[in-house]
Amino acid sequence: MEDPVSSVPYVDRVQQHLESLGHPDIVKLTDAAAAMPIEERVVSRADAHPSAAFNAVVADLLYPLIAGES
């Protein structure tokens, strides 16, 4: 959560692998993470887990996919 940009090539590789298996329904969080200031996207300076605010963003990204699928 601290440096989402440098992980992009590796996330892309996993994405390509999943797509090759017929699963294109992937929500990449790197852009959403990079767009949010670090002090907002992590729990605290002592804990780099995703904050409640970032969890809200994730739910917003997932909701249309799930509501649209079922």
Binding site: H49, P50, L62, I66, A67
Partner: peptide, 28 residues
């Protein structure tokens, strides 16, 4: 992992799975 579990988030209702549950409603 700990992201889904909600490490660091005091109120579990603020985790993304719980937020989804709240928005999707009782059919889910």
């Amino acid at each position: 992992d700990s992201f889904t579990e909600g490490w660091g988030i005091e109120d579990p209702a603020l985790r993304f799975p719980d937020r989804l549950q709240a928005r999707l409603g009782s059919g889910y």
